[in-house]
Design a protein around this nucleic acid. Sequence first.
DNA 1: TCACAGTCGTTCAAATTCGAACCACTCATC
DNA 2: GATGAGTGGTTCGAATTTGAACGACTGTGA
Lengths: 164, 164
Amino acid sequence: MTEPRWLDEREMAAWQSFLRAGSRIGRHLERQLKEESGLSHQQYEILVRLADAPDGELRMTELAAHLVTSKSGLTYQIGRLERRGLVRRRTCESDVRGVHARLTADGGRALRAAAPGHVAAVREALIDVLDRGELDQLAESLGRVARRLEEGEAHTGTDNTPRR
Amino acid sequence: MTEPRWLDEREMAAWQSFLRAGSRIGRHLERQLKEESGLSHQQYEILVRLADAPDGELRMTELAAHLVTSKSGLTYQIGRLERRGLVRRRTCESDVRGVHARLTADGGRALRAAAPGHVAAVREALIDVLDRGELDQLAESLGRVARRLEEGEAHTGTDNTPRR
DNA sequence: TCACAGTCGTTCAAATTCGAACCACTCATC
DNA sequence: GATGAGTGGTTCGAATTTGAACGACTGTGA
């Protein structure tokens, strides 16, 4: 194997900033949500996806594709949310294997209650720290990064791989 | 409470890209490291910090400040690495409470063995997807974001708060 | 219509993570 | 030098995460 192309100083700076920002923001949001709404960020995202879904419900697999969990992780979290009455499970009529998850009225309320604080935290941590141009640039750059990886995930053996 | 300032479309795009890129890259690296080197990203970072340390060793607290774990998480991972002989612990002579962590020869070898593949993965996932200008912009923007949050963490009750 | 490869979601055990409680110690003050 | 607030790291239990294995089912092609 030939000598690898190490990161030069500027590349390293970008990488480190990305890493640090990612983890700090993650912590920031996690704490805020847990404290003010008793939800994990993971759970909040699930509720959002369900609320945004066209029919108000989603198949487990679709849900997992949007989120960052493994299939089993999703099962766990949905179970948790169901126990709290925020989400309900329903077997899919066209495919008995399938399961629809749907927001309950309580779930909707919980989401509406949590949203303002969460958005404020996102603003505080990221959005309001950057100007318009920086935001657009970020969306453009990281959007490309995310898209590439999502495509590439199709053929790996990971548990919850979308495999579209 | 007044109506919160929701995110407009462009802000949302930036936020979503950031989230997705972060988690996808995390998974990407985690998998690559685990497969090719048997290390978690967390562990890899620990080894890097120790290797870069001026005296080849660091206090647990210093280490925790750089990384993203809680104090207890660090104790756990260092224990793990120690069991594998990659790291050694030594009580600090100036302060009996303190503990120095230091890379062993094996640890150095493990790091050198893991580094090329890891760097390649970072390039593939992030660095080589962006051009020079984008990289600099990213470093600038997210650097600011990270710095702000790190400052703000000083007075929160989190476990491993750096508290400098 | 009969395999049969692939899909869906769950279950399982193992690994990791976190915060709170804790113990031993240090340091500034009295 | 005693005292008390604060630090540094570990330990503990609970929550979460993951991949592998599983059981049930689907859809396709012979």
